[in-house]
Write a protein that binds this DNA or RNA. Structure first.
Length: 936
RNA sequence: GCGGAUGUGGCGAAAUUGGCAGACGCGCCAGACUUAGGAUCUGGUUCCGAAAGGAGUGGGGGUUCGAGUCCCUUCAUCCGCACCA
């Protein structure tokens, strides 16, 4: 082969040239294109696709992408057929808010941002198969989002089958048996017989079916954000403010589309057993789903036919229930109020209603109102007063509680405030019998023995719960019940830039569009605002009707709709006839490795699981869980720099001298600071107010800046753009450095100071392939044992570490390898090393691979095979310790037995010093680990 | 309040099952080569101590021949949920 040796002069590591050359080569040769290949095992590596925001990527964004890219490339080397796609979550509020302000169509903003993202991503050299790119705002894509939504509309959840089932089967059951034979998840329940069903008109039947559909319309309390003009799902609201924009959110009763995700609550919990997810995410989702076991119990109301149902997890404490509380929004609140209290009750309800979430959270003062009515405790038969209070939430359980002040802290506070009786029913273990009147807090624990509790006296709490539930069910005053905190997800948004909901109204009754009418494309409108009548923006569209003239739904879908099933679409992105073909989904199954941020734990990651389980029920996907292994990359924090202005002057004092003055700490742009040394000229030019700045420098004549770790943000002037790093050091350096920073899951600060190390490493690696005349040179000489040992040690460590996603230590072992190889230029060592480097630094690896005389891509080479024959040692360097402290080391043959080791160690010169004048108590020898001599 | 995670040099960090604490990199110090160094190379770099040696993984206690790792306790920081009956 002639092209083995290139005698080019001055073969410096020119990363810019190399980068452009190979990115072009990969693009033109479609190096990363992937198709179904049954001769190879599949592997699916997915990144959470980005929302293309106007700000572009900062160095934190690619962290997960680099990790997944390394893993994908590694899997390819290992012989897997790897699906590694990328796309854009392109519907969303920011582009629409921008449209409202500027009139620019969100589609234009989004397209522009996508271009920018693509450029930035391309710069880093990812191995995505771009032929599979998807965008959630593309009608060809959202056709299938709409299609799934229609399926949700057309299915209900059957508790007997424990899966989704077509709604027509529900109709058949109603037709034949009425409601009695149906065990399904529903919102409002209505009992009827088959005859009654048969007599109902179409509209009535549809109303009933709506209570069962998995996408359903319901009058419910929702999070309403007036500023955004839309409702929001629970995960889109934090502390009473919208996540997007940070505007206040109110509660409002509205008719809304919802997804019946609660039907899947138990399966969402059960699924954790089959997937490999980080513990914290499982924990967060488990809390969000919030399963609790207890009972619902009916309380009769004195002098009335009404009954009120409460939910409790502590039915054992029912003998201590001394009052009852209803949520203000409870349908019975006003109804049960006695005439003399009606006005006050009504006032309280009004007051509670007008209180914002924020107010409610800020002040936790006890408030409530007596209704004048009494309930009857079914066990004590005592009359207990009924209150309304806003500490009871309408959205949880039944919106009513039996209050047991002795054993619930909130009830306790309420009872003290309103002077209500407190009866202790659980005896603390080892109690010193303080009378209840003297308690300063309730006793909420489930440890103890029941007292004052009639039939369950003397039982342990656990047994008492079991016994009392049996009793409750026997006397038909209630039943065992599992409750979930998870709420159904509000699915409509009164906004423009989202998928239109494929529903039309015929005589006010919602119907789904047929598949032929999909996609229902987003119409053009004159303004991106609600109509004067307060209708959502889509109501502005001309002819927002079906072909036969029926009005279409004007709400659009929320952000999570498009991202809930996108991983399926990558498997078969151009299929016009199906969401995904059977062939594709039966080959790719589900995502093997999913990398993304933890902030999606209660949003996307739960919706996607629900979505997938639903499709699984329909038989469309073979796996019940979408993401087999999940990894959360940690956040990259910013490293801010500061200058110190002497108060009231324009003089700035260096960090180590600042304590001598009274100073103001000011953020300074990290781009005019190098290794914490401020560039004075650039600083003067940075902002007009600093033009005439004076400096007090340190002894070295430099201005040292202070620094702090903060969130990366524009206002802190600490945003690091990946493009700048790529420009200055190259993509490979960026990739290596980001991975070398620390464990992938851990949050870590970005520190540009360290990047030189990664750059130097690549330069050193490059130099291995060149002789001292700077000519590319590989020797065909046989490697010696030491060189083989270095190589194979590295193969083992790098492979093991990549499998564990421990990229930081993998790189560290590559660094050690390059350091140890020193001037070795043997092909049999450097070519395998080049392949080991390729996932991390693909550009430089590809260049060197081709310089070495190959015509094919390094990315397609098989991973070097580890041979432990090369790493075998016949001696082990034992640490010899006395009383647990290592004093010296000794090379010993690994085949020696403990007796022999003991003999050698005790006779060693060095040992004498530590043994002399002391008694040897014990000698511990752990082969291939340590020798420890205990002396006294 | 409840739940979770994390505490190791000046900095980012490493350390199979308990077995040489600080690998690797940054920074710093010294030297070499240089007109120059913000290039490159060599050596050093946990702290105290001249050395011998001693101390040391947030603090205190325990188990063990031996603890960053296991147990108890305590403190700090970060994150999630938050009137969920």
């Amino acid at each position: 082969m002639i092209y083995c040796i290139f005698a080019k002069k001055n073969m410096e590591y020119n990363f810019r040239e190399i980068q452009i050359k190979w990115q072009k080569y990969w693009r033109e040769n479609k190096t990363y294109k992937v198709d179904i290949d049954k001769t190879k095992p599949k592997y699916y590596v997915l990144d959470m696709f980005p929302y293309p925001s106007g700000a572009g990527l900062h160095v934190g964004h690619p962290l997960g992408y680099i990790a997944s890219d390394i893993f994908s490339r590694y899997k390819v080397h290992k012989g897997f057929n790897v699906l590694h796609p990328m796309g854009y979550d392109a519907f969303g509020l920011p582009a629409e808010q921008y449209a409202i302000q500027t009139g620019t169509h969100p589609a234009i903003t989004t397209e522009k941002n996508i271009q920018r993202y693509r450029e930035q991503l391309d710069n880093i050299g990812f191995s995505y198969d771009w032929d599979r790119e998807i965008r959630t705002c593309d009608p060809k894509y959202y056709k299938w989002t709409q299609w799934v939504v229609i399926q949700l509309f057309k299915h209900y959840y059957d508790n007997d089958l424990n899966r989704a089932n077509p709604i027509k089967f529900l109709e058949e059951k109603f037709e034949k048996y009425g409601s009695s034979e149906v065990n399904a998840v529903h919102s409002e329940h209505e009992e009827f017989t088959a005859e009654e069903w048969q007599k109902m008109d179409y509209k009535k039947r549809q109303e009933i079916l709506m209570n069962y559909r998995l996408m359903y319309l319901s009058e419910a309390y929702v999070n309403w954000c007036p500023k955004l003009g839309t409702v929001l799902a629970n995960d889109e609201v934090v502390d009473g403010f919208s996540v997007r924009g940070g505007y206040p959110v109110e509660r409002k009763k509205m008719k809304q589309w919802l997804l019946r995700i609660t039907a899947y609550a138990q399966r969402l919990l059960d699924g954790f057993a089959t997937i490999d997810w980080p513990e914290p995410v499982v924990e967060i989702q488990t809390n969000w789903i919030g399963r609790s076991e207890g009972a619902t119990i009916f309380f009769e109301i004195a002098d009335s036919n009404h009954k009120i149902e409460v939910f409790t997890t502590r039915p054992d404490t029912i003998y201590g229930a001394t009052f009852m509380v209803l949520a203000p929004e409870h349908e019975m609140s006003l109804e049960i109020a006695s005439p003399e209290y009606r006005q006050q009750v009504s006032d309280y309800i009004q007051w509670a209603k007008n209180r914002s979430e924020v107010e409610r959270m800020a002040e936790k003062k006890v408030s409530g109102q007596f209704t004048g009515s009494y309930a009857i405790n079914p066990f004590t038969k005592q009359q207990i007063p009924i209150y309304i209070a806003d500490y009871v939430l309408i959205g949880y359980g039944t919106g009513a509680i039996m209050a047991v002040p002795a054993h619930d802290s909130r009830d306790f506070a309420f009872a003290r405030h309103f002077n209500l009786p407190i009866i202790q029913v659980v005896q603390r273990p080892n109690e010193d019998n303080i009378p209840v009147e003297e308690w300063s807090e309730s006793y909420d624990s489930k440890e103890g023995i029941m007292i004052n509790s009639g039939i369950i006296n003397g039982l342990e709490v656990k047994d008492a719960i079991k016994t009392i539930i049996e009793k409750i069910e026997e006397s038909e005053i209630g039943k065992k019940k599992v409750n979930y905190r998870l709420r159904d997800a509000i699915f409509g948004r009164q906004r423009y830039w989202g998928e239109p909901i494929p529903i039309y109204y015929k005589d006010g009754i919602p119907h789904a569009l047929s598949i032929e009418e999909l996609p229902l494309e987003l119409p053009e409108i004159d303004k991106f605002l609600p109509t004067e009548e307060g209708e959502p923006p889509l109501a502005r569209a001309k002819n927002w009707k079906t072909f036969d003239g029926y009005p279409l739904e004007t709400s659009t879908m929320p952000g999570f709709a498009g991202s809930s099933g996108y991983y399926l679409r990558y498997m078969d992105p151009h299929n016009e006839w199906e969401l995904v073909s059977e062939k594709a989904v039966n080959y790719w199954h589900n995502v093997d490795l999913y990398i993304g941020g933890r902030e999606h734990a209660t949003g996307h990651l739960i919706y996607a699981r629900f979505w997938n389980k639903f499709l699984y029920d329909l038989g469309l996907v073979p796996k019940d869980e979408p993401f087999q292994k999940l990894v959360n990359q940690g956040m990259i924090q910013g490293r801010s720099n500061f200058v110190y202005r002497i108060t009231g002057t324009n003089t700035f004092v260096s960090y180590n001298l600042k304590d001598k003055y009274e100073t103001q700490k000011i953020h300074v742009d990290i781009n005019i600071v190098n290794n914490d040394i401020l560039d004075l000229d650039k600083f003067r030019k940075w902002q007009p107010e600093f033009e005439n700045a004076e400096f007090i420098l340190e002894d070295d004549g430099k201005y040292h800046c202070g620094w702090e770790i903060e969130k990366m943000s524009k206002s802190m002037h600490n945003v690091q753009n990946p493009d700048d790093i790529v420009e200055k050091y190259g993509a490979d350096t960026l990739r290596i450095y980001e991975m070398f920073l620390g464990p992938i899951e851990q949050a870590k600060p970005w520190d540009t100071n360290g990047i030189e190390g990664a750059f130097r490493f690549l330069k050193k690696f490059w130099k291995l392939f060149f002789n001292n005349k700077n000519e590319f040179y590989l020797s065909d000489e046989q490697p010696d044992l030491n060189e083989l040992k270095i190589l194979h040690k590295t193969i083992k460590k790098v492979s093991d570490d990549i499998e564990k996603l421990a990229f930081n230590t993998a790189i560290s072992s590559l660094m050690i390898c390059v350091n140890e190889l020193n001037n070795c230029n043997k092909r049999k060592i450097l070519e395998p090393l080049c392949i080991l480097m390729s996932p991390f630094a693909p550009h430089i690896a590809e260049e060197l691979w081709h310089l070495a005389g190959h015509n094919d891509s390094v990315t397609k080479q098989s991973w070097p095979v580890y041979n432990d024959a090369y790493t075998q040692e016949n001696t082990f360097n034992y640490p010899i310790s006395f009383n647990g402290k290592t004093r010296f080391n000794l090379d010993l043959d690994i085949n020696l037995n403990n007796e022999q080791i003991k003999e050698i160690v005790l006779n060693n010169e060095n040992s004498k010093k530590w043994i002399e004048g002391k008694e040897i108590v014990k000698i511990i020898i752990v082969p291939r680990k340590i020798v420890n001599i205990v002396v006294k």
